[in-house]
Design a protein around this nucleic acid. Structure first.
Lengths: 110, 110
DNA sequence: ATAGTTACCACGACAGACGTAGTACGACAG
DNA sequence: CTGTCGTACTACGTCTGTCGTGGTAACTAT
């Protein structure tokens, strides 16, 4: 099974993560599983990439975090919620994707 | 006019450059103009990005350089020619593009 | 007991893209 | 005859996102 390298998906992790937050808040572990499932195992995001994306996007105001401290066994889980700025950023990135796709396809032979 | 940021095209510069070498050797300045023209000004590659891609790809054996020293006015020009390994790399990257495109589109809403 | 799953974080390294600056020659306008 | 534009690069240092390694900690199944 061919897998996607980080070099080519770099720049789209933000879109991917934000998409999974559009309808409801979620957290790292779940998002990572969803990416894997939705891509049919073609893209498996690295944990460090994911968590550093969270940090960066929260700093940029695209997501907000809140902690659920009441999980069974005294465990914690950090959820992330998309902000209005995050939705706008997502929308803009999607447009940029469309543009980029059109450009790249001009340089694909055959 | 919307322009494509380096973050989203990163990872595809190699494909773009190699495409322009598929049929005949070329050189930096010309390639940069061709990218601009073919993308209808949507992607303007930075000089440093282009020349460092040349260096990298030559080191990896995907392209070979040769110098034309006989230009008018004693000027020099460095040409690049794609190698068989470069063609194979280009082909593989195109396949990866198809895969990546399919994956990303699953995370585009609407 | 111990391996696996869940859930996350810190640290440093790396590579590609970028900003800035510089070289050098010719053509052409003012 | 001075300055700007176009051609054709190159050097150097910085930044950002991704990654590798390793660690914490609790539950769950064998």
């Amino acid at each position: 099974m061919a897998e996607i390298s980080s070099d080519v998906i770099r720049g789209y992790n933000d879109i991917i993560i934000l998409f999974l937050l559009l309808n409801s808040p979620s957290y790292g572990y779940e998002i990572s599983k969803q990416i894997r499932t939705m891509s049919e195992d073609k893209y498996i995001i690295k944990e460090t990439t994911l968590y550093s994306a969270f940090t960066r996007m929260e700093k940029n105001g695209f997501i907000e975090s809140f902690v659920d401290e009441d999980l069974a066994g005294g465990k914690k889980r950090t959820y992330y919620r998309i902000t209005p700025a995050g939705r706008e950023y997502y929308r803009a990135k999607c447009e940029e994707w469309t543009l980029t796709k059109e450009v790249i396809e001009k340089f694909i032979a055959g």
